[in-house]
Design a protein around this nucleic acid. Structure first.
Lengths: 196, 196
DNA sequence: GTCTATACGCGGATAGAC
DNA sequence: GTCTATCCGCGTATAGAC
């Protein structure tokens, strides 16, 4: 409701962001990925966008609000794929398609993924902020499909962790995106369909 | 060479730590796991061990030195298993045994693993501090075995990430250690021996 | 090995002009 | 929306006594 001009974003919550807010959140996420949330100061964020701290504080009330926006925008990238998967819930290929999109996202945004999954501040946010909580629950439900037993949950958790971790792993540092994407999708699908 | 009394530890480097240093490093790692390295102050570490900041600064020159010690002590827990695996390099079961030990460690020390693998400060340390670099190389080489091609490296990286990530994953938050351990080992082994 | 005391800069955050 | 200026607390780190 607030913004004066462009005001885009496909956020997880219903919030909309001004162009300036979007620039800030994007730059912030990049810095969070490199230094962690706690290791990133508002001064660093301000410098990265070429404004002063006070300008950032005009866009967001607190540093925490910046973090929320950054996570919101990044998670929003998965929303279309998740919507599609839920719409095609009956189709047995729906899960594979969703997994493919998640892998594409993880490979393409390598540097961000580790932060989103493991930074202590973001982890806390993900478990406390309701829109994020609900989004993650939707995502995991779609990936689980019909099975909800312990073994299935371990598998999905392993695949999610493997995808998130492998893209920045030193062992595959030299690999190009295409090769990584291919192997990752094939191996993930075969892993998930391993017999009990 | 410095310590006056107990002086234990099985560190990755050749350093030895005094009893006070060990207490500090252990408490520090616990705090790093909860708040991240950057989110943990020397005051928090001092409070956790019941001494003052100045006492901590007597034990370690800088905060970075505390981080090194904490990582050193934690990685040292894997050293015996790695030594054994290297000694039995011919034995085809050596890798499975090592993987089992790694999984045991990851499950038993759940809270620490994510930090060791993903905290930006520790990641930087792991890639810059030579003893750590060499230790990680030994570990990955032992897990890879004879194969060193891209596909094999992706698999090992996926398993390592999966193990590290799953133990703190919300989807398996309710599971007890024993169940997690069993499924994790069986699934990891089957994943690694999937045909090309 | 631990303490009290202190230096100094940077962190988050606000006020008010343009 | 952005700026300059400022507040205050906490961060890392040091000096010197016990």
């Amino acid at each position: 409701m607030p913004p004066t001009s462009p005001a885009t974003a496909s956020p997880v919550g219903s919030t909309t962001y001004s162009a300036a807010q979007l620039r800030t959140a994007t730059a912030a996420l990049e810095l969070f990925a490199r230094h962690g949330v706690s290791g990133t100061s508002l001064q660093m964020i301000a410098d990265a966008t070429g404004v002063t701290k006070a300008a950032v504080y005009h866009q967001f009330k607190t540093k925490e609000a910046v973090v929320v926006a950054a996570v919101d925008v990044e998670l929003g990238r998965l929303e279309p794929a998740l919507d599609a998967a839920e719409a095609a819930a009956g189709d047995p290929d729906a899960r594979s398609a969703l997994l493919g999109e998640v892998i594409d996202h993880a490979v393409g945004r390598r540097r961000m993924v580790g932060t989103l999954q493991h930074d202590p501040v973001i982890v806390r946010l993900l478990s406390e902020h309701e829109p994020f909580q609900q989004f993650m629950e939707r995502l995991f439900r779609a990936l689980l499909g019909d099975r909800i037993d312990a073994t299935a949950r371990i598998r999905v958790a392993m695949v999610a962790s493997a995808i998130g971790g492998v893209v920045t792993h030193p062992l595959v540092a030299g690999l190009d995106d295409a090769a990584l994407r291919g192997d990752l999708l094939s191996l993930s699908l075969r892993f998930l369909s391993l017999p009990d």
